[in-house]
Design a protein around this nucleic acid. Sequence first.
DNA 1: GAACAGAGTTCAGCAATAACGAACAGGGGA
DNA 2: TCCCCTGTTCGTTATTGCTGAACTCTGTTC
Lengths: 258, 258
Amino acid sequence: MVQSVRRAVHVLRELTGAAPRLGVTELADRIGVSKPTVHALLRTLEAEGLVVQDAESGKYQLGPALVTLGNAYLDTHELRTRSMTWANALAAKTGEAVWVGVLVGDQVMVVHHAFRPEGMVQALETGATLPWNATALGKAVVAFAPEAQQEKLLSGTLVALTGRTVTDPEVLRAQLEQVRDIGYAVESQELTLGDAGIAAPIFERSSAVAGAIGLVGPVERLLDEEHRQAHAIATRETARNLSRELGGFRAGGRLPAF
Amino acid sequence: MVQSVRRAVHVLRELTGAAPRLGVTELADRIGVSKPTVHALLRTLEAEGLVVQDAESGKYQLGPALVTLGNAYLDTHELRTRSMTWANALAAKTGEAVWVGVLVGDQVMVVHHAFRPEGMVQALETGATLPWNATALGKAVVAFAPEAQQEKLLSGTLVALTGRTVTDPEVLRAQLEQVRDIGYAVESQELTLGDAGIAAPIFERSSAVAGAIGLVGPVERLLDEEHRQAHAIATRETARNLSRELGGFRAGGRLPAF
DNA sequence: GAACAGAGTTCAGCAATAACGAACAGGGGA
DNA sequence: TCCCCTGTTCGTTATTGCTGAACTCTGTTC
């Protein structure tokens, strides 16, 4: 473990949250190292473009090179690359927006976002991270994750984003059980009021979950008695095809616990 | 300058290009340091999530935390935040896609992309970097950059993306002069065959260029004799309003050299 | 207007620490 | 089965990065 690198990353992390830009002194206090040390780290990071110093205030903020690196990650991400055509097809078929996500710690990161065909105002860019327990994508992934990881996530902090977000571990455990049963996960107004989600897991070569793909849209349209089942089936089928393309044979449906 | 941090960033850079994932040995060779050193760096980066080790091959690739950092940069970016409503309005008014970009080295990074209202196929996410000389955004920014920087960029390597990309420094210099004259830049099929661009510079507090905003679309539609002038005026006006919001008083038009 | 307070920055020296060479474990291919 | 190549670990050396104190400059306050 290289401490100076660790500290450099801590600097970046500190610049991520809270204030848009911080001074050397404030950073030094927060991280718990001396001022000159932080200064040296910042100068190095600046030379590499990971950090930029504001000409007027002398304070530091994140640099543009980080965007390039982030994009490079997304481009090398096999699941994302492969999922793009499938996501577009699913969006075209269902008329809803499609998200593709992977599990990062206890968050779901949206690595691809296919807009709904007739949509107009559509925010949320790829790269957003959301609590796993508040999304259909998250539930779909966690349901098929190794048991140890499931327990860890269930016993971790469970954030509520709306009044309907499920944070009770036992209720969640039952939901995950159901996901394993029917092969897809549903979320209703747990992430955003008025919106719902339907998602199915994607498996890779080693038959481990790689991520999930799912629909997002207004509850009325998505979970309508008429469309709900068709949406679920279309989603699950897309996930299966994607899994097959990635070499994962454990495509959906019930499976023995790890 | 902290060498270990520098090397850690070099590792990330190396993982950015070429192969999606690299082994310890290969990385060590490319960077020119010993194997154990690279290993220690990778372990540290992995602990922070900036790098991920592939379970099967043992090779390393970029990690998801980079996306979070990249997004954090975009969120803290004042120009981007402020430009979003203006970009949407311009897209609605002109019926074309709108890009907002900043200059990063000799590249233009697209920090925001407002889709055209009636568009369907929507590629290119924010975060893409393009050669400055092949985009209207780049020309708009460089035309109002400090003279020293202009010279440096003109004497640097000028990449051609299509047969129509201008790479002759003298021609470019004349184009920049014209941009300063009329207050906006035009590019026709220099970035992508069939597409054109119109862009105007955005100024910030200190009256330095902060970036540019512009339209992108099919040549026929964008540079049509009928629409061309209206598009240019709308773009320039949007840029002026944005500049005013950012506190930049030097809004468009001719200005004395620095 | 002058003095102060706080910022970012620089310098020199000590010692912790990161880099290296050599040796180890584990797979895949021939 | 053997070999070669991978990623990994260990222990030593001196390189390297950390700290305290001092400097400069901007902005504020009296």
